[in-house]
Design a protein around this nucleic acid. Structure first.
Lengths: 206, 206
DNA sequence: CAGGCCATGTAACAATTGTTACAGCTATTG
DNA sequence: CAATAGCTGTAACAATTGTTACATGGCCTG
């Protein structure tokens, strides 16, 4: 396993443990990595690619919570590992993704043994709590057009490309809105010179 | 310090450390325990009472995130301690509250030494993440009348009393709505036989 | 007990978001 | 190349939530 990219995060001894016990996994764009209600036995550590984490209610409506990318893991998952509770969220791959699956059993013992692991875990909790806070902020304080703008910009940043390949329906699903509303708002943004719309594409100007 | 109530949570040696290094603090109803932007040096462990945690945006609008009560601490605070970043939230006492302030310096060393501390910390992260998830769920999937109903019931449960002393304006602030809207919805709930309204009081029926 | 502040009730209206319906266009597939 | 499925544009309308304005009545304070 090539752990070079993880070197800055972990002390050498921990790296060798990750090398010994971690299982590398490749997941394709669109695949569901973790689903709601699943028992989680492994902590996924993202090496390449990105994952989107979302929440669903009883009637099947969705809301995007946040994205997770390189060097991070999903704090929700951490908890589920520690407590052995079923997953509260769904994780879907945004792009082809490689990850190291670390058996949940090491979670606790590494916390006692490695300071770098504690830092890693806490940084991730911090990150996830902040992402959730950001989600609450958006839902509370922003109107849909502002949420949409934020969403589009985040997507572009994540994939480092101002041309998005996405449909209005996908956006509507992520924002828990409806396609017609999203189309309407996008059209307005285009008229305002912020975007160029095409079939399956949104080109961010500026 | 009387740590009896904490006995079920922590191993004896840790309890004696808490006894040695923790500082007991009494806070009055309505007092601000932690404010946005503050540096946090202590982990507050709630012994009695309850605290409400809220978020504010640039223009001063608020939203209630969740309540924290006995045996718990605020995961936001944990993070701020670990990372030494300013607080992202405000914590206001719901009732007169006693807490033990644990200097942030012990945070990490106790994690290495005490399994019960690790469990405590992780349980709290779990709890806070779940509360934030619940907040996101409410904001996303519920209409205001449902959020209001949930809010009122939570309040009653927290104070173990079906008669609330609260004004419509306070509710509106917690839910980031406006007083008129809340009055309108409460009136409807009263007409539906769910409540009895009075000046500064809401009596939950059923 | 008069004045003022605060809490509540209500109406009228505005803004935002959601829904339904349908038309036209594009890409794919057989 | 015809058929089909999926994507986008648009209009008309509905529901929800927010805003403004004003009236009433309780309660505290001087």
């Amino acid at each position: 396993m090539n752990l070079g990219s993880l070197k800055p995060f972990f002390e050498p001894h921990l790296l060798s443990e990750i090398d010994r016990f971690g299982i590398v996994k490749q997941v394709k764009k669109g695949d569901i990595l973790i689903d709601i209600g699943e028992q989680i036995q492994f902590i996924p550590l993202i090496i390449e690619g990105a994952v989107k984490v979302l929440r669903e209610d009883a009637s099947g409506d969705e809301i995007l919570l946040y994205f997770v990318d390189f060097g991070n893991t999903c704090a929700m998952t951490l908890n589920c590992c520690m407590e052995n509770t079923p997953s509260e969220i769904r994780a879907v791959c945004e792009a082809d993704t490689s990850l190291i699956m670390i058996p949940a059993t090491y979670m606790d013992s590494w916390l006692a043994k490695y300071k770098s692991w504690r830092i890693f875990i806490f940084d991730n909790f911090q990150g996830r709590l902040n992402e959730l806070l950001k989600a609450v902020d958006s839902l509370t304080f922003l109107k849909l057009d502002e949420r949409l703008e934020r969403y589009i910009n985040e997507k572009a940043e994540l994939q480092k490309n101002k041309k998005l390949n996405i449909t209005h329906l996908e956006i509507a699903t992520d924002l828990n809105s409806s396609r017609v509303v999203i189309s309407r708002l996008l059209k307005k943004m285009e008229k305002d010179g912020l975007l160029l719309l095409g079939r399956n594409t949104i080109q961010i100007l500026n």
